[in-house]
Nucleic acid binder design. Structure first.
Lengths: 217, 217
DNA sequence: GTCTACATTGAACGCATGGTCAATAGACAA
DNA sequence: TTGTCTATTGACCATGCGTTCAATGTAGAC
């Protein structure tokens, strides 16, 4: 209702949601003061009255997207699994389910990341948020994957977690680059590839076959 | 030399290079008619005289970047390797070497891809180029990886190639998102993870250990 | 030397953008 | 009711953008 005064927090949320919706529908470039104001049914001046500048608004949207995207990731049902090989597979499945469930948000995440390459303000905030995420996720993953990592010489649990995340991101990129590719099918293939050696390794006796290159400490 | 007439092709290349340099230095948004003209030491009007519109120029840069980025990828030295497990690892190493050697071009690739999500013209062209790449790469990879894939039930050679590419892209994204992460070290960890099961699988007898879920045809 | 074709120039146009600000309107206290 | 504070408005500004185009310069044909 235009012309009616509202609480500061209410207005900020109203504006932020409008900006997020525009970005989700048509990309970051669609966030313009006028369009945001129009969608929020407010005047353009009010947007800047509450946020000071467009940059502040964009960074607030970025923060919100990342907070919800990189929220706690390793569910208890994964940690509860006892068999080492199965546990990593369950982690991968859980992450994959998240990706397929929120393609829109993942898309925005990548666009923010791309924008951060060139826009210093976005880049700095992106880095902060990713650091925060990493610090929360890595130890958690490491704890869950410790038994898996122990089976691979030279691979730490943290390294294994990083690789797992990297692999999932690869799937995400692949699915975005090839939208016609059924991501579930793609993941099934990847899982099939990983499942056998992982489970085989879990059941192997000590000193498995290694190439010279990987027989390092 | 301003004011001097030049061959059509020479001018187009001159302008395209200027646009590419600007994008590589400061992102796609840095491609403006005036800046391109200034860098190429020409007048703004001439840029549009030769390209018709900014969009055509951007798409020409995109095409050029993708053609050079997605050029032939599987070297003969990889195909020459006989041991199945080692061959896939060699493919991964080769791709990784490419990535680390051209971070700038990879970065631009991702930015084009991000832009293509919202700009129809860029999106369509991006899809064309990626289709072209896929059609060239997949069968090639499949031929090279056939022996590897045969060892994993339910995994085709093409699927394996797709997974390998996805994995590499994951590494690329990971390295871009975490610049402070030593990508070589990260890849070594990933390789260490994959190497053992791959080589172990290659040396295993028939009917290896499988979970129920993966004992499908 | 003259002429023709066209590559080249740069001023100008229309438009969209982020941002400013004086004026206004609404909520609330006295 | 009156007064005060401030949330809200919308016209306005400066800037940068893609694009147009009449004028100019240059190379080559004759």
């Amino acid at each position: 209702m235009p012309g009616t005064k509202a609480n500061e927090e209410v207005r900020r949320e109203q504006i932020r949601v409008a900006a997020y919706e525009l970005a989700a529908e048509a990309g970051l470039r669609a966030i313009t003061i006028r369009d945001v104001a129009e969608r929020a049914e407010l005047s353009p001046g009010l947007v800047l009255f509450h946020f000071g500048s467009k940059e502040h608004l964009v960074i607030e949207v970025l923060t919100w997207v990342l907070e919800t995207t990189t929220a706690l990731r390793i569910g208890p049902e994964v940690a509860a699994i006892k068999a080492p090989g199965e546990r990593l597979l369950a982690l991968l499945r859980q992450e994959m389910a998240r990706l397929t469930a929120e393609p829109l948000r993942i898309r925005l995440f990548f666009e923010f990341w791309s924008a951060g390459l060139w826009d210093p303000a976005i880049g700095v905030r992106m880095k902060q948020e990713l650091d925060r995420y990493r610090e929360a996720f890595r130890p958690m993953a490491a704890a869950v994957l410790e038994a898996d990592a122990a089976r691979f010489p030279g691979v730490t649990a943290e390294g294994l977690a990083a690789v797992a995340v990297g692999f999932i991101k690869g799937c995400a990129v692949q699915s975005l680059i090839e939208p016609e590719l059924d991501i579930a099918e793609f993941f099934a293939a990847a899982e099939g590839l990983l499942a056998q050696p992982l489970l085989a390794a879990a059941s192997l006796p000590a000193s498995p076959v290694l190439s010279r290159r990987h027989r390092r400490r």
